[in-house]
Design a protein around this nucleic acid. Structure first.
Length: 565
RNA sequence: GCGCCUAUAGCUCAAUUGGAUAGAGCAUCGGACUUCGGAUCCGAGAGUUGGGGGUUCGAGUCCCUCUAGGCGCGCCA
């Protein structure tokens, strides 16, 4: 815990009839800096003491005395506000960052706990569209953030490699497949087949039955079906690897839906033994009516299994294997009901860990205000988006910094960073309108803005030309702008924790934007490197701290921080 | 029909989960020291937080209701 809050607690605890925990919970950071560094709102006491919060605040003020770290106490309306000792703040925060470097904000919160994160999970034989970006980057970022907080993370790519869709593909392949096309451009060919199937099935619904029976065959281990399936899967995985390589994302497990096939009978038996399963319209279901949920289907009338059956099986397997503290499903909000059903069935099966399953849901990526439907063939390939963004980044570099070395490498990092940041910076649950212009705009609240600020900081440190060392003079920090920067830096560990608690990388995004903005304001106003050695050393020490935190923050989002751009 | 999600400046989004005067970016207009990176910074205009009611000392945030959009509701995933 923050030493300043600690001291405020010390100051308050003898004068206020609240427990230390309560005081700590109530202490807040004012919305505007000029109001103070910390505040204690008196509303809660108002009811108990039957006095107005303004009165309580002013009465309290008379009894409170500044201490070591807190140098000023005053009240504004119903708040008691505290000002910290700037010199001490600067010393603590900047030294802490300097010593811990990339471990700044690390925590023991997650010690000994494992978090399994199910993310990305693309469907085999379908192109990797922009729609898959969200799960991929949110999951990746949460992975890194939880790791920073001391958790052991297991990233699972729950590949959509099983199900009736493969029956559809096999039918389409057998009817209209072109061997030559398939080997030369597998993903596009498979995608075309998938779209073609849906077009044809509108006219000839019996195709759907064919598809179902081929999937049934696949599930029963039919050799031909299996061979075709394996081939499609291999093609797809190769394609997905390209994307993961670009984004530098890796997984600890690729156990997809097909992986659980061998455990599925066991699951169904278990559900039946626990008296939860019943026959209904020739299918095997779990009735969840009591809980205001629709029935959960375990087996179709042709005995083939469903998505829910496989997810239930997967959760049990994951618990046995990892003993997770939490299992996060980073999956679109369209599947909310599905997860409610799955979680409920697991709860009814008597697994106490069912409460540790979390659906980290998110909204759609819409294109021109419409939702893309893979079935209908509208898709924007993620690879194209990333490439286009890299291209634009390169153009800008040519224009603004033609002498830069390793332009391609930097353009790559900036281009990818722009797309990833654009996706992460909006709150999960909102739909995103995918707009080329907005995503590829590198000014304002964007990834490149943060990267640019980072590059500028690096440039300053290079110019300084000496190794940055600690034990600088902290009393030179007297400007409001410097103070804002230091306070922001101090807030980083707290923000990381909130980001994790809410499974919301956008919180870290807006933190980084704030930090950059506060620094840029200072930079624009003040010179950092001057003839005054004392002040230069101190300011560079602070600059180093800002650089460290920005780089760390970007990395936790899965974004690179180039030193020049 | 029922359930869930969303609605904040012309546009894209914030608001520390019920607290102080609702803040940023984009776009528009005006501006920035002959030395540190102008992908930057400063200023201006722009708001009945979709409408209405309620709870509360206090509501963009909670409850009710209406409107608009989205998603989901048994053999897809």
């Amino acid at each position: 815990m923050n030493r300043f809050v600690e001291e405020i607690k010390e100051i308050l605890k003898t004068e206020v009839d609240l427990s230390e925990e309560e005081i700590e919970r109530i202490i807040e950071i004012p919305p505007e800096e000029k109001l103070g560094d910390y505040a204690f709102p008196c509303f809660i006491l108002a009811k108990r003491l039957k006095k107005s919060p303004e009165k309580i605040a002013s009465n309290l003020l008379e009894k409170l005395k500044p201490k070591d770290l807190i140098e000023k106490i005053y009240s504004i309306g119903p708040y008691v506000n505290f000002r910290v000792n700037k010199k001490k703040l600067a010393e603590f925060v900047l030294t802490d960052i300097f010593e811990k470097n990339k471990s700044y904000g690390k925590d023991i919160l997650g010690e000994g706990k494992t978090i399994v994160i199910d993310f990305s999970s693309p469907n085999i034989a379908k192109p990797f569209g922009v729609g898959h970006l969200r799960s991929t980057v949110i999951g990746n970022s949460l992975y890194k953030i939880f790791e920073h907080l001391g958790y052991k993370c297991i990233g699972v790519n729950h590949l959509g490699d099983w199900g009736t869709q493969f029956g559809k593909l096999i039918v389409a392949y057998k009817n209209w497949g072109d061997e030559k096309k398939l080997s030369s451009d597998p993903i596009m060919t498979l995608f075309d087949l998938y779209v073609k199937f849906h077009q044809e099935a509108e006219k000839k619904p019996e195709l759907e039955d064919d598809a179902r029976s081929w999937f049934k065959k696949l599930e029963n281990g039919d050799e031909e079906a299996k061979k075709i399936w394996q081939r499609f899967k291999d093609y797809s995985l190769k394609e997905f690897e390209k994307i993961y390589l670009m984004l530098e994302i890796s997984f600890d497990s690729y156990a997809g839906e097909s992986f659980y096939n061998k455990y599925i009978d066991q699951t169904i038996e278990e559900v039946q033994k626990k008296g939860l399963a019943e026959k209904s319209q020739d299918a095997l279901v779990v009735n969840l009516k009591k809980f205001n949920l629709p029935v959960c289907l375990l087996r179709k009338k042709d005995e083939a299994t469903l998505y829910a059956t496989r997810d239930i099986t997967a959760a049990i397997y994951r618990y046995k294997t990892y003993r997770f503290h939490k299992l996060l499903y980073v999956v679109g909000s369209a599947q909310k009901l599905h997860f409610q059903q799955v979680f409920k069935v697991l709860e009814l099966m008597g697994y106490p860990w069912a409460k540790d399953l979390v659906h980290v849901d998110f909204g759609w990526i819409k294109f021109e205000k419409k939702i893309l439907s893979t079935r209908k063939g509208d898709v924007i390939f993620l690879e194209d988006v990333l490439k286009k963004s890299i291209e634009i980044a390169l153009d800008i570099i040519q224009k603004k910094n033609p002498d830069l070395e390793k332009k391609d490498e930097v353009a790559f990092e900036v281009g990818i960073g722009a797309v990833v940041f654009a996706d992460l910076s909006t709150k999960r649950q909102k739909d995103i309108n995918f707009d080329w212009e907005e995503v590829l705009d590198f000014e304002g609240q964007t990834g490149p803005y943060i990267q640019y600020t980072h590059a500028r900081l690096c440039s300053l440190i290079r110019k300084y030309g000496k190794p940055v060392k600690k034990d600088v003079d902290f009393s030179v920090f007297s400007l409001e702008e410097e103070y804002s920067i230091i306070k922001k830096l101090d807030d980083f560990p707290r923000k990381i924790k909130i980001t994790a608690e809410m499974y919301e990388p956008s919180i870290l995004c807006s933190y980084l934007l704030d930090l950059c903005s506060v620094f840029n304001r200072f930079y624009q106003k003040e010179r950092i490197i001057t003839d005054d050695k004392n002040s230069t050393d101190s300011r560079i020490f602070m600059i180093k701290g800002v650089k460290t935190v920005i780089e760390l923050g970007l990395n936790l989002l899965g974004i690179k921080a180039p030193e020049r751009m």
